[in-house]
Computed example of a mutant assay.
Amino acid sequence: MRARSLLLSALLVGCPLRAGDKVFDHLVNHLQSRYQKAPVGTGFMGFMARCFSPKGVSGLRMAIFEEVDTRQPQGEDFEAVVRSTIGTEVTPLLRSLSRTGERCSIYLWEREKRTELLIFSSEKGEVVLLKMRLDPDRLREWLNDPEGMARKKG
Rank of each mutant, 00 (worst) to 15 (best):
A3W: 13
L7A: 13
S9D: 09
A10P: 03
A10K: 12
L12C: 08
V13P: 00
G14W: 03
P16H: 14
A19V: 02
A19Q: 01
G20N: 13
G20P: 04
D21H: 05
D25N: 10
D25S: 15
H26L: 12
H26E: 14
L27Y: 09
V28P: 04
F44C: 02
M48N: 02
A49F: 07
F52L: 11
S53L: 01
K55H: 12
I64Q: 09
V68I: 11
D69N: 15
D69P: 09
R71Y: 06
E79N: 14
A80S: 11
A80P: 02
R83I: 07
T85N: 08
G87K: 05
E89I: 11
P92T: 09
L94A: 15
L94I: 15
R95L: 01
S96R: 07
L97P: 06
S98D: 10
R99P: 03
E102L: 10
L108R: 09
L108K: 10
L108G: 01
L108S: 10
L108M: 02
L108Y: 09
W109S: 03
E110Y: 02
R111S: 10
R111H: 11
E112A: 04
K113G: 14
L117Y: 14
L118T: 02
S121M: 12
S121A: 13
L130T: 09
M132Q: 00
R133L: 13
P136K: 05
P136N: 05
D137H: 15
D137N: 11
R138P: 00
L139M: 13
L139N: 13
L139P: 05
E141S: 11
E141K: 12
E141P: 00
L143T: 11
L143I: 13
P146N: 07
E147M: 03
G148F: 06
M149H: 12
R151G: 09
G154N: 14
